[in-house]
């Protein structure tokens, strides 16, 4: 007996829905499996239209909750971002396009300000600290040899040397020639190793998602329990 398996739908509209979803899915997959074709084009345009309409409704709902309701409730300061939001539309008036720069200034100022301020700590200082923290901090390397977990020390040296080489590879105002060259070549190899490992991690995950879509086909066709 199979537990917790939903029964195949009986409502005609629900059945129509899952078949439409299947058709659209196959229409989209016809692209990588065959090539761009009228069926793909149809699905593409339906999807773009759907996402735009739903996006507008979702944004209007959010605007009602985050701007309009608080505004009529007495938070009159919110009139400023609403006006700034409308300023974006001055893009459509040739002589007044410059007005649309002000809302952009708020967005860019906010992202650059936060990005600049919040980056040095986790992305530079923490990375340096993690790299120079020995397997057992406060104990010298010779106190650990021999008979100690040399694997940890090897990893520590590997990471530190690898990071120094990889960072040298990124020097912008020095050509990769002369004494720097071997270091940058080694740096490039460390970088390739990182990219390869990331690739290996992702391939399986992506394929499992594709396999889930394959299962969906079988479920709709009734070949496996729905």
């Amino acid at each position: 007996m199979i537990a917790n398996v939903a029964a195949y739908p009986s409502d005609p509209l629900v059945i129509l829905g899952i078949w439409v979803a299947l058709f659209l899915m196959l229409a989209i997959y016809s692209y990588p499996l065959y090539k761009e074709n009228p069926v793909y084009r149809f699905a593409e345009h339906i999807f773009v239209a759907t996402a735009l309409a739903i996006g507008i409704i979702v944004n209007l709902t959010s605007l009602r909750n985050s701007a309009w309701t608080p505004l009529v409730g007495g938070n009159y300061l919110l009139i400023i971002p609403i006006i700034l939001g409308f300023c974006m539309y001055f893009l459509l008036i040739p002589k007044q396009r410059w007005v649309s720069r002000y809302p952009i200034a708020i967005l860019v100022g906010s992202s650059l300000g936060l990005g600049i301020a919040s980056n040095p700590l986790p992305s530079i200082i923490t990375q340096v600290i993690s790299t120079i923290t020995a397997p057992k901090a406060g104990t010298a390397v010779w106190a650990w040899f021999p008979g100690s977990p040399t694997g940890d020390w090897f990893s520590f040296v590997f990471v530190a040397v690898g990071l120094i080489c990889s960072m040298t590879y990124f020097l912008l105002t020095y050509e990769h020639t002369g004494p720097v060259k071997p270091v940058t070549i080694a740096g490039r190899y460390f970088i390739m190793l990182a990219l390869g490992a990331y690739f290996g991690n992702t391939v399986l995950f992506r394929f499992s998602m594709l396999a889930e879509r394959g299962q969906y086909i079988l479920r709709v066709l009734g070949l496996v329990p729905y």
Binding site: I132, T133, V141, M167
Partner: peptide, 13 residues
């Protein structure tokens, strides 16, 4: 990184 690495090897934090 370089100085920190060398210090770590001699157990200095």
């Amino acid at each position: 990184l370089g100085i920190g690495f060398l210090l770590a090897l001699i157990g200095n934090t």
